[in-house]
């Protein structure tokens, strides 16, 4: 029968869709905040799943009832036919009430989580390490003022140590995201934004600029190395002793030229005021370069 065929294939399409969705969620490779390497990403993942579960009371009835209705009330089907039935107080209460309750719960949850997970709020676990981040076309500069080193496109973080990033951009709007650690914040010229993160699983991850900023936008990713505290200290010492160049005015000016570095660069200094200089420069004179 034609109708039956439509309905069956409709069911099949839906089942396929759900399967695809399930597959896509469960089968994610070990990437992204779904497989977190830090507490922020973990909290965001948990929040994501909790929303999914809380949505079930409103969406499951639809997914269950809709196919039943389509089948039962098909033309020449067995269902009773009441063309003038247009209102029912019970249903009204249900269809307004249920979403209101769910949104109430989810909204409360949203508020708590948003305040709790404010990217500007330091994470527990001691005094956060400061890192200043400058987005250039098409690379990232990381300054470690406490350690006195800087890097381009390589971010070393001690495991389990909270980090506070201060970000700005020396070009256009950019967006800073380390998928495995969660969180995302814009880096904007002439402005400073903040992001608190922590890595609690040692490993090598990828960091991104997710905001399109020209032809080499795709290349503007950086290596994130979450390493044990001792290795981190050893790395800092290594950078200082290895004869890496200082980050002087000339180097900073060179970074302004749009380019994609072949490999990460290391610098043996993190001059005071370099970050503020970029912010100031953008505000008054405009970003140079291009």
């Amino acid at each position: 029968m034609r109708l039956a065929r439509y309905l069956n294939s409709g069911g099949a399409a839906r089942a396929g869709a759900l399967l695809l969705a399930a597959l896509s969620l469960a089968g994610c490779a070990d990437l992204g905040f779904i497989n977190p390497a830090g507490p922020v990403a973990a909290a965001q993942r948990d929040h994501l799943w909790s929303i999914l579960w809380w949505m079930m009371p409103v969406v499951v009835p639809l997914f269950v009832l809709l196919p039943l209705i389509l089948w039962r009330y098909r033309y020449r089907g067995a269902g009773d036919y009441r063309p003038d039935w247009t209102h029912s107080n019970q249903f009204e209460v249900l269809i307004w009430g249920l979403p209101v309750i769910i949104v109430g719960v989810l909204g409360y949850n949203l508020w708590v989580e948003t305040v709790e997970m404010d990217p500007y709020k330091p994470l527990p676990g001691g005094e956060p390490m400061q890192i200043q981040v400058i987005g250039y076309d098409w690379k990232w500069l990381f300054l470690y003022p406490e350690q006195g080193v800087s890097t381009v496109n390589a971010l070393y973080l001690p495991v389990n140590r909270p980090v506070e990033f201060e970000l700005t951009s020396a070009s256009v709007l950019q967006s800073f995201l380390i998928p495995k650690l969660g969180g995302q914040i814009y880096a904007m010229p002439g402005m400073i934004t903040k992001q608190n993160l922590k890595g609690d699983v040692a490993g090598d991850y990828i960091g991104l600029n997710t905001q399109y900023n020209g032809n080499n936008f795709t290349d503007q990713h950086f290596d994130v190395h979450v390493v044990p505290e001792a290795s981190f200290d050893a790395w800092v010492t290594h950078v200082k002793d290895s004869g890496a160049p200082a980050l002087d005015e000339k180097m900073l000016a060179a970074l302004q030229v749009p380019s994609v570095p072949e490999a990460p660069d290391l610098f043996s200094t993190a001059p005071d005021g370099a970050f503020e200089g970029v912010v100031e420069q953008a505000m008054v004179k405009g970003t140079c370069g291009i």
């Binding site: 992204g32 994501l48 999914l52 989580e113 967006s175 995201l177 969180g183």
Partner: peptide, 25 residues
């Protein structure tokens, strides 16, 4: 109806700033 509800679920997810931070862009 069916498809829009799927989009609605992810829309409610994205309405949460915390989830949006991880999935924006």
């Amino acid at each position: 109806l069916v498809t829009f509800v799927v989009g609605g679920i992810t829309g409610v997810m994205l309405a949460n700033p915390t989830v949006d931070f991880a999935t924006h862009n």
